[in-house]
C-alpha cells in the first residue's frame, strides 16, 4: 500500500509542516550558534591575520635582501667583466666604508690598505670608468680622492679627435673640461679618456662624456662640462689598479 503511493498524501500532509518547522528551527539555531561562536572565530582570525602579516613582513624583508644580493651580484659581475677585459692591469676589489666629513671635499674611504698592497697614488676605477686615486693609506684602509673633488686635476684626451685638455672637479661635484685650444673641435657626446701623461693615471680609462661646450671667442681656452658615468653618490665596490705604480715627478719640477 505504501509502495503503491496511497500514503503519500497523508505523509506529505504530516511531514511537510514538520520539515518546515525543523528547517526553521535549525536555521535559527545555526544563526544563534554562529553568533555565540563568532567571537572565538574572530579572535582566531585576528591571530591568523597577525601571523600572516608577520609572515608577509618576513617575506618582504627576504625579498629586499634578495634584491640587495642581486644588486651586489650585478656590481661584482660587471667589475669581473671589466677586470677580465682589461687584462693588462691587476686589480684589487675594495668596499667603500665611509666618506669625507667635510662638505667641501669628495673623498671616500675603502676597507683595503697597505697590508693588501695598496700604495699612495694608485688609480681607482670601476666598470663605468675612472673614480679617483689613492691619497692616503693606513694598514687596513685607504682614502680615495674622487675625480669630482675640487682639488682633482686629470690630463685627458678627447675622442675622436685626440684633443688634449684637463678635467677638474668642483665643490658641487660637477666635472669641467678646461685648457682646450680655441681652434679645437669638441662636441657634446665626445668621450674623455685619461691621457697617461703626468704619471698619475694609466692611459685610456673613461673619465666622462662631454655634455656642453662653452665657446667664448675672447677666452684663451675652450671650456666644457663633462658627465661621468660613475654615480659617485652610490659607490659600493671599487677596483684599485695595483699594477700601476705612480712615479713621483715632483722632484723634476723646478719651483
Amino acid at each position: 500500500m505504501g509502495l503503491g503511493g496511497y500514503f503519500n498524501r497523508i505523509s506529505n500532509t504530516v511531514l511537510n509542516p514538520l520539515t518546515s518547522t525543523m528547517e526553521w528551527i535549525y536555521l535559527r539555531v545555526q544563526v544563534v550558534s554562529d553568533l555565540i561562536q563568532s567571537p572565538n572565530e574572530l579572535t582566531e582570525l585576528q591571530t591568523q591575520n597577525l601571523k600572516l602579516e608577520a609572515e608577509v613582513a618576513d617575506l618582504q624583508s627576504q625579498i629586499i635582501q634578495y634584491q640587495e644580493n642581486q644588486k651586489d651580484y650585478e656590481i661584482i659581475s660587471a667589475l669581473l667583466d671589466f677586470a677580465t677585459e682589461e687584462l693588462q692591469n691587476e686589480y684589487l676589489t675594495a668596499i667603500v666604508i665611509a666618506r669625507d666629513s667635510s662638505p667641501f671635499l669628495r673623498y671616500i674611504i675603502i676597507n683595503k690598505g697597505s697590508d693588501d698592497g695598496i700604495q699612495r697614488g694608485m688609480p681607482v676605477v670601476n666598470e663605468q670608468g675612472l673614480i679617483g686615486r689613492v691619497t692616503a693609506v693606513t694598514t687596513n684602509a685607504a682614502r680615495i680622492q674622487l675625480i669630482s673633488d675640487p682639488e682633482s686635476r686629470i690630463n685627458v684626451v678627447i675622442q675622436p679627435d685626440n684633443i688634449e685638455g684637463v678635467v677638474s672637479g668642483s665643490v658641487t661635484g660637477e666635472l669641467s673640461l678646461d685648457l682646450v685650444p680655441q681652434d679645437a673641435e669638441i662636441n657634446p657626446g665626445d668621450l674623455a679618456l685619461t691621457m697617461g701623461i703626468g704619471s698619475n693615471f694609466p692611459g685610456d680609462i673613461v673619465v666622462g662624456t662631454v655634455t656642453s661646450v662653452r665657446d667664448q671667442p675672447t677666452a684663451l681656452f675652450k671650456e666644457a662640462t663633462l658627465e661621468s658615468r660613475v654615480d659617485f653618490d652610490d659607490l659600493k665596490i671599487v677596483l684599485v689598479v695595483i699594477s700601476f705604480e705612480p712615479v713621483d715627478i715632483s722632484v723634476l719640477i723646478e719651483e
Partner: peptide, 29 residues
C-alpha cells in the same frame, strides 16, 4: 668650522668660489 675649512682650501690653492661655497655648501650645512 666651515669658514676655517674654506680658508684652508683657499690657502692650499683649491679653486672654490665664495658665492658657490656659501649657497651650495655652507648655508645648506
Amino acid at each position: 668650522t666651515y669658514g676655517a675649512q674654506y680658508v684652508y682650501l683657499l690657502v692650499t690653492g683649491v679653486p672654490i668660489s665664495l658665492a658657490e661655497s656659501l649657497n651650495l655648501v655652507i648655508n645648506p650645512s
